[in-house]
Simulated scan of single mutants.
Amino acid sequence: MTIDRLWGRAVKQRGGMRWAVAAACCASGALAAEPVPNPARVPDRQVAMNRVMAVAESAGLAGEIVLADGDGPILNRARGAADRERGRAHRVGDRWLWASVTKQVLAVLVMQQVEAGTLALDGTIRRYLPDWPGAAGDRITVRQLLQHQSGLPNPNETTANADEVPAFYLETGARIGDRARAYGICAGTGKPAGAGFSYNNCDYLVLAAILERASGKSFAALVAERIARPLGLRTLRMARDGVPWGGAAAIGYTAGGRRYPAINVATYGAAGGLTGSARDLADFDRALVAGTLLSAESRAVLWRGDPKLGYQALGVWSFPAPLAGCTGPVTLIERRGDVAGTQVRNVIAPALGRLVAVFTNDDSVDFGEIWQGKGLSHALLSAAFCPPSG
């Protein structure tokens, strides 16, 4: 098995710019449905945050980092420039693009409908959208959509402009809604369903249409009703149509310090269009771990990584990671995102009762791969979750 397949990572490369990123993970051995025992005493929260920021400073990482435990204060710090041309610095609490962390939120809403008995993971598109025009509606299941095995057409492959931006991400108006996309481009001819992992934003746009039919409410309305208001997340909302950077505070940059080409972030919809603060993301993670949003049984299904799919679970990846300073592998729940020059790493260590979320507005940052035991992500997470080694 190749590394690419093992990790289940599909990235559309256009001139060195990533249009979509699937979080991926790999380690030897099988992963249990429940987190492995705590492999080390978690370091003091403030000490851990200081170590994380030292790693970020050494790497020249610009953005915001938030660290939190199941209870107690949420720690977050910002460094570097949000707007390099104007010299405007990142500030704690600013609005960020949540990018494909949006998929993690959608997966939770889907599991809530599963709990309610109005959706089944192995139910087909046609079961919930009988008028869906796609030819494979009787074969593609909710689970396959959640795990990017649908074979649906890929928005990243639409015709690109001079800046190499696919046309899909430039459109505005009513045609960019989740349901309009699901019944439009996402219902076209793609690949055979179940042929293997292929990262695709259409999967989650169709899921949003299914969720809307099952619940009677749009994805945005469900986010507000079931997540933002109950948890007191005051900044969480969808990117606004046609607004630069989706209304986020940070300007995205790519290789060479160039501004990321203009796109309409709202076109990502339920696949990547949420915006909000880093702190609100930490509160979402804490509620998920605490059982506020899902039962323990549903959360176990949500977080059951499949080794044959690169440890892909539902909307996230769940895998045992070798971290420096911990005496054994640490089970991590990871969701990555990459939209308009903003990268996100949202990582929960359930057995340690701790989470870390990292936002940067530099698309050229190489976080590396945790399973290799080196790289920026490995250093940041080792600092956050493990006592100092040596």
Rank of each mutant, 00 (worst) to 15 (best):
A82R: 13
P73F: 00
G80H: 01
A282Y: 03
D363K: 03
I370T: 04
V66H: 03
S295I: 03
T275D: 01
A107Y: 12
A20G: 15
G184H: 02
S318M: 00
L61E: 01
A99R: 13
P192H: 09
G368T: 04
A32G: 15
V114T: 03
A208K: 05
A10K: 12
E34N: 08
R213Q: 14
R229V: 11
R345F: 00
R139S: 12
L380M: 11
G29E: 06
H378I: 07
H90M: 06
R14D: 02
L129Q: 02
D280C: 10
D280K: 09
A383W: 04
A193E: 12
V206R: 09
A68N: 01
P133Y: 06
L302E: 10
A249C: 07
A99V: 04
A56V: 04
D122A: 08
A321Q: 08
V47F: 04
A120E: 15
R237I: 08
R175T: 07
L146A: 05
L146Q: 05
L207A: 02
L31V: 02
G63D: 00
L294E: 00
A249R: 14
G315K: 03
L355C: 03
R229N: 04
L121H: 06
G194R: 13
Q144P: 09
R258L: 06
G16P: 13
G276D: 05
A250F: 05
I176G: 02
A250K: 10
T267I: 10
Q372W: 10
V339Y: 11
P320I: 00
T141A: 03
L302Q: 13
T327H: 10
I263H: 02
D203I: 10
A174V: 11
A82K: 12
L119A: 12
T331S: 11
G134K: 07
A266W: 08
A180C: 09
A33W: 03
G247M: 02
L293R: 06
I370K: 01
A116L: 12
K308H: 04
A351T: 07
G117C: 11
V92F: 01
C186Q: 13
V66R: 14
Q113N: 02
A82G: 06
G272P: 14
A10Y: 14
T102F: 02
P192F: 13
W371V: 15
Q112C: 03
T159P: 15
G93S: 13
P388K: 00
R336S: 14
F168N: 04
T275P: 10
A10N: 15
R127W: 04
A187M: 13
G269P: 14
P153V: 09
V101Q: 12
R139G: 00
Q149F: 06
L129W: 02
T189L: 14
R354A: 00
L97E: 05
A187Q: 15
E334H: 13
G8Q: 13
A89K: 11
G257M: 13
D338K: 13
L145A: 10
T2Q: 14
G16N: 12
V265K: 10
F168S: 07
V356P: 08
E297F: 10
L274P: 10
F197L: 15
R279F: 06
R237F: 05
E115M: 07
V21P: 12
A248Q: 07
L302D: 08
P322M: 00
A324P: 06
N346S: 15
V206W: 08
V330S: 05
P320C: 00
D178E: 06
E34Q: 12
